[in-house]
């Protein structure tokens, strides 16, 4: 068992556990912190997958900016211990049941269906996933979607301001 594989399993366990932690924490601040842990773990996995640029983006935007935003809203509203009564008692069991079914389907696909659709990974060039190559692709072939994304962010910003501002009239 290579070190990479050992590292993957450790990271996978951390990611799953942190996700479960986010799921079950009564305090939403804890949930947020578990999610940060999860994101960071995934960022490390990205590094293992030859995607250093995306890993950086993951850490800075997700684990940094977005989760800070979450924490900021939680603090702002003071709803870290929001009431979690039971309004639909039959919903969680059904949800778990259906989730189990989905997992079974995933398992079937991954381990019992045809295996030769994915190419065997022989050796990966060192240049793969480098910020340079990503940047070239982003600013050449995907220039228009990139610019559209900037517009999207602008719209989101404006929308957030309008939604969140107090009624002035």
């Amino acid at each position: 068992m290579s070190t990479q594989l050992i590292l993957f399993f450790i990271l996978a366990v951390i990611a799953i556990l942190s996700a479960i932690g986010m799921l079950v924490s009564k305090n939403s601040v804890y949930s947020a912190m578990f999610l940060v842990l999860n994101f960071v773990t995934i960022a490390v996995l990205f590094l293992l997958l030859n995607a250093p640029f995306i890993a950086m983006v993951q850490v800075t935007i997700y684990a940094g900016a977005i989760m800070v935003l979450f924490l900021f809203v939680i603090m702002l509203l003071g709803t870290d211990m929001a009431a979690e009564g039971i309004s639909m008692p039959w919903q969680p069991p059904i949800a778990i049941l259906l989730s189990g079914a989905l997992i079974l389907e995933f398992a079937f696909i991954l381990f019992f269906a045809q295996q030769d659709v994915l190419p065997q990974i022989e050796a990966i060039s060192a240049a793969f996933g480098s910020p340079q190559s990503i940047g070239k692709l982003l600013f050449n072939f995907y220039l228009l979607p990139f610019e559209v994304t900037s517009v999207l962010l602008l719209v989101a910003m404006v929308g957030a301001i309008i939604l969140a501002q107090r009624e002035t009239g």
């Binding site: 059904i94 259906l98 989905l102 389907e105 079937f108």
Partner: peptide, 15 residues
């Protein structure tokens, strides 16, 4: 939940 159920059905069909 309904959407999820529908997704499950679709997946089953595809499989």
């Amino acid at each position: 939940l309904s959407i999820f159920f529908g997704l499950l059905i679709l997946m089953s069909y595809i499989l």
